[in-house]
């Protein structure tokens, strides 16, 4: 019975594998601007940007052969994945054409990532992994998770939380700003950084293993904001975390 189950599982897996769709572009540097609600972006050692749909494949419409889906904004699905991929100079722009697509993008490590999504998404997530170049993020509603990244990093989030796990060497500047949700960041203990943690209405929590040498502040203006400013391991790259209503957690990378 067990063998039968294994064989069936293998068959189903092979079916799923054959259903995955890909779209590739030869590009190992430049900028990739992504305007998609739900996305997973991973760095790898290659020279192609590879887009894969993780959504269930739509039924094939024989009448649609040779045609492209086009949306309100004029974006055309030229990839077959429900997204538009267009080159503009040194930049590749990716935009949503069909709603609710879940796209995975493999990116060569020399490519700069800029991800924007400024619409309500009901719990969508953007995930970034294994990236060694600059990442720029602008999120309205999505939660954002970055794993095994080095920076530089510029993140702005309105409602979604931001989680970042850095690995050495952390490259600055790092600037993360969140309005309503929390910022949870892990950094290696040996990171050399000029730290500034700012929060308007919520606590700031820091790992005792991170020895921040606090700077003396001269408050010339009345200020209702909590500001922690200082040097970590003698100072270095600018490392700014700014929250208004959510907590800030600064941990050491495990």
């Amino acid at each position: 019975m067990r063998k039968q189950v294994v064989m069936i599982a293998l068959s189903i897996a092979s079916l799923i594998a054959t259903q995955a769709q890909e779209y590739k572009i030869k590009r190992a540097n430049g900028k990739l601007k992504i305007d998609l609600p739900s996305v997973t972006i991973e760095g790898y050692n290659g020279n192609e940007i590879i887009f894969t749909s993780q959504s269930k494949k739509a039924e094939v419409d024989p009448k649609a052969e040779g045609l492209e889906t086009i949306n309100n904004s004029g974006y055309r699905d030229n990839s077959g994945l429900g997204i538009s991929v267009v080159e503009k100079g040194n930049t590749i722009e990716v935009n949503e054409v069909t709603e609710n697509q879940d796209i995975k993008i493999l990116v060569p490590k020399g490519v700069i990532i800029a991800w924007y999504w400024n619409k309500v998404t009901a719990g969508a997530k953007a995930i970034f992994r294994n990236l060694e170049n600059e990442i720029e993020i602008d999120s309205y509603d999505d939660s954002v998770r970055l794993e095994n990244v080095t920076g530089p990093l510029a993140v702005r989030a309105v409602y979604g939380y931001v989680e970042v796990v850095f690995r050495s060497p952390v490259k600055g500047p790092v600037s993360i700003s969140a309005l309503h949700a929390s910022i949870d960041v892990s950094i290696p203990v040996d990171t050399k950084a000029g730290i500034r943690l700012t929060n308007l209405h919520s606590p700031i929590m820091v790992s005792p293993d991170l020895k921040i040498e606090l700077a003396k502040r001269t408050e010339e203006l009345p200020n209702y904001t909590t500001i922690i400013e200082g040097k970590l391991n003698g100072g270095g790259t600018d490392f700014w975390l700014t929250a208004k209503f959510g907590k800030i957690y600064l941990r050491k990378t495990k």
Binding site: Q19, Q21, Y23, I25, G74, R76, N78, V85
Partner: peptide
């Protein structure tokens, strides 16, 4: 199914009216 439904390889970048 995959073979007959797979998208044609991209020959270049699409133009857009944006």
């Amino acid at each position: 199914v995959w073979y007959f439904n797979k998208p044609q390889p991209a020959t270049g970048f699409a133009t857009t009216n944006i």
